[in-house]
Amino acid sequence: MAIEVRIPTILRTYTGGEKAVNADGANLSALIDSLEANHPGIKDRLIDGGDLRRFVNIYINDEDVRFIGSLEAALSDGDQVVILPAVAGGAR
């Protein structure tokens, strides 16, 4: 089983500069564990206290995972996962 995960610039330090890596897992949580096994440290940038970090967006086949079960979102072979840091900020 192989799922392509697109890695944003800021996290490529964990993937040796690779823009996309393969990982596997039946759901997003398992996929992130699989990423962590090959790219130690990346999980902490995605998850905080057992939940997806507020300012990290992850998409499965173009769907924001927050609308499809978050870390429980189901995955299958050939799915495409995209990770993007939120573009956000503000005076306060």
Binding site: N57, D62, D64, R66, L84, A86, V87, A88, G89
Partner: peptide
């Protein structure tokens, strides 16, 4: 998407589209 005088954030769908 925050529509705020003190915060901004791109809508997540717009963000994906842009990238």
């Amino acid at each position: 998407a925050a529509g705020s005088p003190t915060f901004y954030e791109y809508d997540s769908t717009d963000l994906l589209q842009l990238y």
